[in-house]
Simulated scan of single mutants.
Amino acid sequence: MEQNLNDKTACLVTAFQSGDVNAFSRLYDMHINLLFNYGCKLTTDKELLKDCIHDVFVKLYTKKAELGIIDNFKSYLLISLKNKLCDELRRRMFMSETAVEELNPVAGDDVEHKYLEKEKSCFENKKIKHLLAQLSPRQREALTLYYIEERKYEDICTIMDMNYQSVRNLMHRGITRLRELVG
């Protein structure tokens, strides 16, 4: 089944690179959910994620003549999305995360309640981010690929450009670190 899907994808990529717009559309449809689910593990900003996914496909379309041969299209897309998200997050890192509405709350019980709920949620999110930040980015990525995306170690090796034993070691260290932080 997996081999048939890879063969079908390879045929579609070849057709797309030859100028078949319908092949591009089918590639998009085949991979959009995978990319979105993978991206949700890397960021909670759904709008940023959607923009980055579309940017990946726009770049793919505009640079199709320069692509050459793509051995594993799915891995190519996942790596492209990860790189695009990292670029965008680095770019946004210097921008303020505080919304104008949070700086001047309107008086009133309902507004105060909403504000306190928002602060509580923000605190919890920061706490979770802090725990995840204790892992290296590579550990977070490897654990996400294995447990959330249900990838095989061979796929993780390809996506992360690492050998098999290094991925296993990375996974072990990440799990051990999470157990220390939680327990």
Rank of each mutant, 00 (worst) to 15 (best):
I79S: 06
C86R: 14
L103G: 05
L85D: 00
E102S: 06
I79V: 08
L85W: 00
C86H: 12
F94H: 13
E88V: 07
M95P: 00
K82I: 07
N83S: 14
S80C: 08
D109M: 08
L77Y: 00
L77H: 01
L81E: 05
I79N: 05
P105C: 05
E112G: 08
R90H: 10
E102K: 00
R92I: 09
L78C: 14
P105H: 01
L85M: 05
L89R: 13
F73Q: 03
V106T: 06
D110P: 02
D109E: 11
E102F: 04
L85Q: 03
I79C: 11
C86K: 15
P105G: 14
L85I: 13
Y76Q: 13
K82P: 06
V100T: 05
K74G: 03
L85G: 05
R92C: 12
R92P: 08
K74R: 11
V111T: 00
F94C: 12
S75H: 05
E101K: 06
R92W: 14
C86F: 15
V111N: 00
V111W: 03
Y76F: 15
A107T: 15
D110M: 06
N104F: 08
N104K: 14
K84Q: 13
N83I: 13
A99E: 15
N104T: 10
L77T: 01
A107G: 07
T98E: 04
E97W: 04
M95E: 10
V111H: 01
K84I: 03
M95Y: 03
P105N: 15
E112F: 03
K82H: 13
S96V: 12
F73W: 04
L81Y: 05
K82M: 02
I79H: 04
V100C: 08
E112Q: 09
D87I: 05
K84A: 12
K82C: 04
T98N: 01
F94L: 13
D110Q: 04
N83E: 11
E112I: 01
D87A: 01
T98V: 10
L85S: 01
D109R: 06
N83K: 09
D87W: 06
V111R: 03
L77E: 10
E97I: 09
K82W: 04
N104P: 04
K84N: 14
E88Y: 13
G108L: 02
L85K: 01
K74V: 15
N83R: 12
L85E: 01
D87T: 09
S96M: 07
T98M: 03
E112C: 09
T98P: 03
M93D: 07
A99R: 12
D110H: 04
K82R: 14
T98F: 00
S80D: 12
S96D: 14
D109V: 08
E112L: 02
L78D: 09
E101C: 10
V100D: 09
